[in-house]
Nucleic acid binder design. Sequence first.
RNA 1: GGGUCGGUACUCAAGCGGUCAACGAGGGCAGACUGUAAAUCUGCUGGCAUCAGCCUACGUGGGUUCAAAUCCCUCCCGGCCCA
Length: 344
Amino acid sequence: MTIATKGAVKSLDVSDLERNRVPIILSNTYHLLVRPGLEAMRRRGGLHKFMGWDGPMLTDSGGYQVFSLGKMRKITEQSVTFRSHIDGAIVELSPEQSIEMQQAIGSDIMMQMDVVLAPDVPRIIARDAMEQSIRWAKRCKDYLNLNREQSMTKDQKLFGIVQGGIHEDLRAMSVKGLTDLELDGYAIGGLSVGENPEDNLRVAAYTADLMPSDKVRYFMGGGKPEEIVAYVKMGIDMFDCVIPTRHARHGSLFVWGGEVTPELLNEPDFYKKIIIQNAEFEDSDEPVDPNCDCTLCTNHSKAYIHHLFDMKEPLAERLATEHNVRFYMKLMETIREGVENDVI
RNA sequence: GGGUCGGUACUCAAGCGGUCAACGAGGGCAGACUGUAAAUCUGCUGGCAUCAGCCUACGUGGGUUCAAAUCCCUCCCGGCCCA
């Protein structure tokens, strides 16, 4: 999933997404609740219509913002209270309100409201958050079942989010509690939030193995290309990450290590990252990546995109973002091909 | 010709006896970003270095002082004012 937090993939238009074969986007409940707000979203007829996107869309519940905006919120059993990062206004988000907003957005897949924590919190805290997340999942499902008619999109799906930090037994309890609720799909949450790489892979593999294989498994927030390949091998189906788009805006571009085939993905250095502002690129007439078919690589040189970043031209971000999005989409296409042909 | 203000590192610009190799900004160099408060953030930016230090530096050349980018004198260059 390419991330469109506030109803746009930063610097890209919907036609750019379609041209680069983006299959599904992710948007965010909290940010859209702050602006333009619930009623405005209803008046616009939902986010698909508002932004002109006909494809699938998933919305995060706002749970991650409970974590990332931590200094400005208070969590209770009932809800989370934020101070808006825009104007300081009080914004309350409960599991029910999250679903109500996600219904107004009309996403195809809604995420339950959860409690995300840093990886280094005491085990008892991680356990409480995990258990609260299960209770909140139930409230999300109950609210949805009672209010189906208010959705902007028919048959919205609801996914649960497995929590439990880096503790395997807590992860197992979380999976049990959520699967008892018979949700439409399940996600691994609370990873890629600062834990060390070994814990990340260990917990992801352990958790993925416990999750029902007949439903979608989604790893939230990850990851780097090699991590995604590893997660797929664990049985995970869906991903979202800000890396391709944010890195692009900051001048980090992904470059394939060679002709893109499923076999290539088994090589340790199947790609590299270059920082295009670096002086070594100022004189290169070569494309960023000869194995890429994006607008940047088809039409322009490294020297040109280097220059655009140097001049802080807005086009730099747009071309770079399209390139990294194309890289990630090609990564997923190639992984899929590799899985179907038993290469990965 | 007289008066006056000023000349600081790539640029702009602080400092006005010791804590100054010299604030800050820009520029340059490099790095980070994982369910996006992010066109953001961090480090370095005189030379040498065995990373402890050493050397050369605040227009020029002298001087005062234990000590000068800072005080005094000479000269050079620039702005402004008066002739």
